[in-house]
Structures are given as structure tokens and as C-alpha cells.
């Protein structure tokens, strides 16, 4: 398909999904930020009766102990974002460092690292994360973030390795060496600026995965312990009352869905933009 002809309709479609992603993520980020200053009730405040359906007093209803679910959802947004950012930061850092090292390594070491990435990717992220939590013998928010970060790192490492190898094959790297630029400076000034935009798309997707995985960990009781109101924990607590008070499961489920879809739409939009500037340059 030709670049020139595709640009018209694609631009508007790409723009619309990007905007929708921005709105979904924006609403959740706003909710998380506002939760620091204001929530309808205190988190552990048993403000209503048990299992109240949504009402003007409790927009998302109440849980088994009569606590306000909307308050928990707002705090949960904060936790989801912290977990996503933290896990992506840790996974991104480990993955980028090992990926770049692999790309620079001699053939044997490179093959070995590539094989390690592939084997680790074959394990579900959640399984790796559960092993890390088990090893730390303590379920805390920090452990969950660390565990998810480690779980994500091989995927980032693998992509970093491939992107770095592509950049290393470009003449401007040879030109930089001939200009007397050191390898360290080549990584910082030539490789990173050219791989980070593409890696960014992938990291956004990993963010979505991390949020999902944290919910799964919490659901299994391996995530952030109470009183943290993670969406996964909310789902777990609503499990036994899902037929009598479905709102307890529906709202955190929707919030999770909105954040993950929103992030994916943003990543798609970002990729479209990159693709377009890539074509313009070529």
C-alpha cells in the first residue's frame, strides 16, 4: 500500500483512536491524582450499609463491609498507575541494558543472551512474577512492582536487542566511530534516540500487561495487601457476592478494561505517528 494514498483516511482513523485512548487514560490518571486530595469517603470508612447498589450517595455502591466502592476505585487507579509505571521502569531498565549489551556482545554471548530472552519469554510474565513474590516471602506493593518489572524485562530486552542491531548496521554509527566518538557516547547519542521512540510503543503495551498482571496477582492474594485497594483485590473480594451484588465486580473490571484498552489505543496512535514520519523520511 502506498504511503501517499493511505495517509488521508488513515490519519483521521489514527487520530480518533489516539484521542479515545487519551480520554480513557486521562480519566483514570485524573481519578488517581484527585484521590490524593479528595475521595467521597475515607478508604476504611464504613459509610453505608452492606452491599448497597449504586446510588447518589455511593456512585458505585458499597462492599460487604459497607465501604464506598467509588473511593476504592479512585485509590485503585492510583495503585494501577504506580504499578504500571514502576514495573515498566524496572522492566525497561533491565531489558534495555541487557538488550544493548547483547547487541554489542561477541557472537557467542549474544546468542546465549538471545536464548535466555526467548526462554524467559516462554514463561508467562505472571508465573515469573509469582516466583519473585514467593522468593521475597512477603506480598507488598513494592514486591509486586519488582516482580512484574522482572517478569517484563525479557520482552523489552529482546526488542531492544533487535532494534539496537538495526541501528548498529547504519552508516551513521560507522561515521560516528570515524569521527572519534566513543562507544558510550554512541549508545547515548546515536542508539538510544533512535530506538526509544519504537521501544516506547512497546513499553506502553507492557504497561497494560503490567496492570493486568498486578490485578491477577492481587486476585491471587499475592499483590498489594490491604488496606491497598487494588482493582484486582476488589475483584477478589467481590467474588463471593458477584450474583447478589454484581456492581462490586463490574466496576473494577470496567476500570481495568478502560485503562488497558486506553493504553493500547495510545500505543497504536504512537506507532502510526512513527510509521508516518518514517515513511516521510524514506
Amino acid at each position: 500500500m502506498s504511503a501517499a494514498g493511505a495517509a488521508g483516511p488513515r490519519r483521521s482513523r489514527g487520530g480518533a483512536t489516539y484521542l479515545l485512548g487519551l480520554i480513557l487514560v486521562g480519566v483514570i490518571v485524573a481519578a488517581g491524582l484527585i484521590s490524593f486530595a479528595w475521595t467521597p469517603y475515607a478508604l476504611s470508612d464504613m459509610a453505608g450499609s452492606r452491599l448497597e447498589p449504586p446510588s447518589p450517595a455511593h456512585w458505585a455502591g458499597t462492599d460487604r463491609l459497607g465501604r464506598d466502592l467509588f473511593t476504592q476505585l479512585m485509590i485503585g487507579a492510583r495503585i494501577a498507575l504506580v504499578v504500571g509505571c514502576g514495573a515498566v521502569a524496572i522492566g525497561g531498565a533491565i531489558g534495555m541494558v541487557t538488550g544493548i549489551l547483547a547487541a554489542f556482545a561477541t557472537r557467542f554471548a549474544d546468542d546465549a543472551l538471545a536464548a535466555v530472552f526467548d526462554i524467559l519469554i516462554a514463561f508467562p510474565t505472571l508465573l515469573i512474577a509469582m516466583l519473585v513474590v514467593a522468593a521475597r516471602e512477603e506480598a507488598s506493593l513494592g514486591t509486586a512492582i519488582l516482580a512484574l518489572g522482572i517478569g517484563l524485562s525479557p520482552i523489552v530486552g529482546r526488542i531492544t536487542r533487535i532494534l539496537t542491531k538495526q541501528v548498529l548496521g547504519q552508516d551513521y554509527i560507522t561515521a560516528a566511530r570515524v569521527s572519534g566518538t566513543s562507544w558510550g557516547a554512541i549508545v547515548i547519542f546515536h542508539i538510544l534516540p533512535n530506538i526509544v521512540p519504537f521501544l516506547g510503543v512497546n513499553l506502553a503495551l507492557q504497561f497494560g500487561l503490567a496492570v493486568m498482571a498486578e490485578a491477577s496477582l492481587s486476585y491471587l492474594g499475592l499483590g498489594a495487601p490491604p488496606p491497598n485497594a487494588s482493582w484486582g483485590r476488589m475483584l477478589q473480594e467481590a467474588q463471593s457476592t458477584v450474583y447478589t451484588a454484581p456492581w462490586g465486580a463490574v466496576f473494577p473490571g470496567l476500570a481495568l478494561f478502560a485503562l488497558v484498552i486506553g493504553i493500547n489505543l495510545l500505543a497504536d496512535g504512537l506507532r502510526d505517528r512513527l510509521g508516518r514520519s518514517g515513511r516521510d523520511a524514506g
Partner: peptide, 27 residues
């Protein structure tokens, strides 16, 4: 110093021309 074959791959697309041309001076 050297000049390479492919004018599309020998200049870092992320850098401004000033930065590209002065790279040997800085390095």
C-alpha cells in the same frame, strides 16, 4: 576522516545538522 556511500543512512535522523557536522569536533 571519511564519507560513506548511502546518504540516507550516514546521517543520524534524530540529530540536527549542526550536531551532525560538529560531531568530530566534540568527540
Amino acid at each position: 576522516q571519511a564519507v560513506f556511500q548511502d546518504p540516507y543512512s550516514s546521517l543520524n535522523p534524530a540529530h540536527r545538522i549542526l550536531r551532525i557536522v560538529t560531531e568530530p569536533l566534540r568527540s
